[in-house]
Every structure is written in C-alpha cells, then in structure tokens.
Write a protein that binds this DNA or RNA. Structure first.
Lengths: 248, 248
DNA sequence: AAACAATGGTTCAAATAATGGACCGATTGG
DNA sequence: CCAATCGGTCCATTATTTGAACCATTGTTT
C-alpha cells in the first residue's frame, strides 16, 4: 500500500465510539510498525488532520478535517440540504431514515435520523452499504445508466443474510420494480429483521448521486405500509433532488 | 517534505472559492510533478478523501472528509459546547456575540448570537476575520506563542478602516493589554462604527484554538461598559475552555 | 482544416524517502 | 519492586517515490 494510504488508514481507525487512540494501539491495528505509525501521525499532525491530547498523549482527529469538510460541504451541500427533509420523513413514517452518498462503488452513510420508537433500526454514520442487498443500493442501481448496472452485476455478489438477492435475475426484477415505482424495497437483504424502502437522489445531470432509505423492524411492515413509505420516500428524494439542482 | 505532507498539501489547495481543480493545475500549485500529483490523488481517492468529477475529470474534496469530520465533531463539539455560553453572554451584555475558530492563518466565524436590540452589529457565519484589526484576532495573538505572533507581524498588514492598527508598535501594545487583562479591545478596526471585545478560547495543550467577541455599536460604549463586557467575555471564554478540555 | 497548446494519463530507471528492529526513559499495575 | 507496557527515537537497509519523456485527447488559434 502507498504511504499515503497507510496514513489515511490511520485516520480511519477513529470511530464515534473510539475517538482517541494511543500510539501502540494505532500501530497494531493498522498493521504498522510503531515508528512508522508515529512518523505518519506527525506528518498528519503538521497539517492538523491529527491532534494529540497532551495529557494522555493519545491521538485524535484534528481540526483540519473539519476545515476541509466545510469547504467540501459548502460546494456540495448534500447533507445540509437533505437533513431537514430526512428528519421530516423520519417523523412522518415514525421510522429510522438514513441518507447515503455514492462514492467509490458503494454507498456511504452520511446522515441518520433515528426513529423515536424503542424498537427501531439503528444505523451508523459512516457505514458502507453494498449496491445489491440494500434498498438504497437497488434504488441507486435503478436510477443508474444500464452500463453501470451491467458492470456491477458482473462481479460476484456477497450474501449478507439468507435473504440477500445475489442472482442477476432476482436483482434485475427488483431493479425493474424500483425503476417503475420510483422506490425500492428490500426485506432482510442486509440484516435479519430489517425492512427497508429506498429512493434515489439525483444530481444536476440526472445521474444518481445518493439515496435515502426508511428502515423499519420487519414486524411493523405490511404491503400497505410499505407502499405509503415508498411514496413518502420518493417525495422526499425528489424534494432533495430539486433543492440540490436549484429547481426549488 | 514527507509524502504524506505532499498529499495533504494537495487537499489544502481546494478553497471555498475554488472547490474543483484539474490535475495539471494541482501539480503546478503544489510544486509537484504531474505523475506524482496523480499518484497521490489516486491514493487519496481510494480512501474517498478526493473525488473526481467524471465529466470534466477535475478533482474535488471527497465524502470521506465529511465522514471523518463528523467523527471529530461528535467528540470535540466546539460549536455545540460553546453555543449556550455564547447565547448567555449575548443575553448578559445585550449585544451581538460571535464565535470563531482559528484555521489557516485567520479566524473563521462559526456561530453568531445576535443582539435583540434594533441597533445592533450583524455578523455572518462563515466570515473570515484577520488576526490584526479585530478584537478576536488580537485576543488570539495575545494567547499565542511569541514566535507565532512575530511571524504574523512580519508580513505587511492591510488597513480595513482609518482606525485599523497596522503598526507593529501599536499592535504590540494592544496585544500586551490583552495578555494582561485577558480580553482585547478594538474600536472600529475592521468596520466603521463597530466596537469589539475579544477573548481567546484555549485547547487542551494551552494553545488558543479560537475566540469569542462581543460586538457593539460604538455609540453604546464607554470605558466602564467595555470593562464589564471584557470581564464577561473572559469568563465566558474560560468556561468554554474548561468544558472543552474536560475540566468542568 | 491544419497546426498548436493545452489537458489527463502512463512508463521505468534512478534517487530518495520510508521502514522496522533495537533501544531509551517513563508509567502503570500486579 | 519487578515486569510489562507505554510513547518516543535512532539509523543502516530497503522499498517506495520520483520525474523526464512519452501518449492520446481536447479545445483553441491561425
């Protein structure tokens, strides 16, 4: 791996649950030598992508990241524009709703609005979703150009649960449903007991850039509820698309 | 410079005003070979810190930065922690109060609490403040290490109004005042008719990371009021510092 | 249309920067 | 009090990065 890749993989070790990590720990988990890890951390710290807590000497993500993210978000205000719509959709459906952006062949979860119910689906920001096997992914594929879909379906597809759609035929069917109805549906394709409804968000060029999805415990879902969630998800996705492309 | 440093300096070429840059341009500005720049960009793109617009083939900051910034902000909630204190200070003084973070040689306004009065100072989130010429900046310099201050004062300083302090001597005096009293004072240094009182917020290492400032119409200010605003600003800044560093 | 000057992207021998085992002093915990 | 772990440093060896020369393509100028 490139040196830069190693440095970035150090950054990626930090999570919401573990925002500060010591040197030895970082080196061990990244599979690097302690000396190497330290040199990389120092290089990152020089640009404020990493900070070091002076008391404990542990490392954490730096302010430079916030700065760079602000620049990106100002130009590409996906989350900022979508967040209120996502929240509204969560209140309307009473379920957890999450927003994802397409990036490097997968969907990256950017924002989550959790259901207020005790029995709810939990999704983490930062989670990477495959294009097959999640409602978000199917909705994304359904909005993509055919050549993109074809290229994706050629590769072997991993099954995450016993219900994951891996056959090209069943997937094509699900994609066709999403293409006609405007929303996709996935029952326990990624995690047992979770039902999801997805809809694609489009960029200014009409190509999909991300998705939103309503995730419910399967026990609360029947066809009528799924249908109304689908309509609501589609409306929300179209609203975000319109605002993003300035057609508001 | 380390390879990692070069890669990060590529990221730092993107700004609010120029969020997409082509390969040759990036290489030229970073002082790197085209081939080198591209390899670094590819390494960054593999981790989603950079994206490439497929049509124009230009590069932009990637979604991974937003992800990492979210993790950092969740753990190091500068604005979230400071906002209630800012609000309280605004209510106490009856004036507009704003919060800034040091970033790339200047202060970036992150949060504003406007005065309830009709005649008030308006400040915008996102506004960039110079270190000289604003009360925030003087307070920041007064809390910085001497070498940082020296380096900054060496460069020629722009005058924003007829009252802007640009001479090293007058600035040194203002900094000295801020260093002893804990708060800085600037009268019409950045905008005519505006009087400001600033105080620095410190990180865990004792170095300043940002500032807050009380901004009033100059017609409402006399020395006694300025003094009480200064004491209040200092208390508020210390409270935020304490909460940030966990010494609450 | 032809010539031109950019652009993004690729290759490979040479040069440079990254690597990691050994080591140090300081904490920590049994 | 000792053993284990921590963060941090050193430097000969090694592997990665480097950049001039090279395409193919695009868009501009003559």
């Amino acid at each position: 791996m490139s040196t830069v890749g190693k440095a970035v993989s150090l950054l990626e070790l930090f999570t919401l649950h573990e925002p500060e990590i010591g040197l030895s720990d970082l080196a061990r988990r990244a599979g690097l030598d302690k000396a190497t890890a330290r040199r990389l951390l120092m290089a990152l710290a020089a640009h404020r992508l990493i900070e070091q807590e002076p008391r404990s000497r542990r490392y954490r993500l730096g302010a430079g990241l916030s700065r760079l993210a602000r620049i990106r978000d100002a130009h590409f205000p996906f989350v900022r524009l979508a967040a209120p719509v996502i929240r509204e959709l969560s209140l309307e459906t009473g379920e957890t709703v999450h927003l994802s952006e397409f990036s490097a062949g997968a969907l990256l979860t950017l924002h989550v609005e959790l259901s207020a119910k005790a029995n709810r689906v939990n999704v983490d920001v930062g989670q990477v979703l495959p294009l097959h096997g999640t409602a978000s992914g199917i909705a994304f594929l359904a909005a993509s150009r055919l050549e993109v879909v074809g290229a994706y379906l050629e590769k072997p597809l991993r099954a995450f649960t016993a219900h994951t759609m891996t056959g090209p035929d069943t997937l094509a069917k699900a994609i066709a449903f999403a293409a006609t109805s405007g929303y996709s549906r996935s029952s326990q394709g990624y995690e047992e007991g979770v039902h999801s409804i997805g809809a694609a968000i489009l960029g200014a060029d009409g190509q999909p850039i991300g998705t939103l999805a309503v995730a419910s415990p399967i026990s609360r879902i029947d066809d009528a509820i799924a249908g109304s969630q689908g309509e609501a998800a589609l409306r929300a996705a179209r609203l975000i698309t319109a605002r993003l492309t300035g057609e508001a």
